[in-house]
Design a protein around this nucleic acid. Sequence first.
DNA 1: CCGAGGATTATCT
DNA 2: GATAATCCTCGGA
Length: 198
Amino acid sequence: MTPLGFYTQPAEAVAVGLLGALLFRRWPDGTQACLRIVETEAYTGRDDLASHGRRHPTPRNRPMYGPPGLAYIYKSRGIHWMFNVVAEPEGEPAAVLIRAAEPLRGFEEISKRRPRRGPLEWTSGPGRLCQALDIDDSFQQVDVAEGRSGLWIEVQPPLDAPEVGRGPRVGMGKTPEPWFSLPRRWWILGNSYVSKYR
DNA sequence: CCGAGGATTATCT
DNA sequence: GATAATCCTCGGA
């Protein structure tokens, strides 16, 4: 499947399919990091009161309505950057939040951006991941299927179903049921880098 | 180990 | 004016 075809799928399918995908970051000085995506969440449009796309386009959520395969980045709590990849055809507000990843290469580069913290706290959460990889809104709407921006994803073959966990999303706050409990979070079972804030 | 509370600001109503 | 797709620190056990 082409990258465009992959990201054009429903957000749920993209979220599952991104488990095990390789996330790359290359800095201007030539240093590089490679991580394995281990936790994702799906957000869609009017059928999802937890999603930024639940009402209509706004300056912030505009990228969710745009072409699939581009980054959607926003700031949470005025502090933490969140990294999503847009899914579904242009016009449909949908995105997949990259919640956690397991560092494979570039430990030095990652650890120096997460000082005074152990490896398990480097990238085990969406805000931590963006801190570890210097991801901010300068990557807004970059194409994650190609590496020119210095941030890209290489999708891998699907995992076997028994390796995948599924459950409610994190940080739903006052979101009403049933959206509060919809099982739209996926993770790799047994992986230590899955976020621990539930 | 665990739970409570604070940080900090753009965005939306 | 309230809220937020989070993270960290601190106090108590």
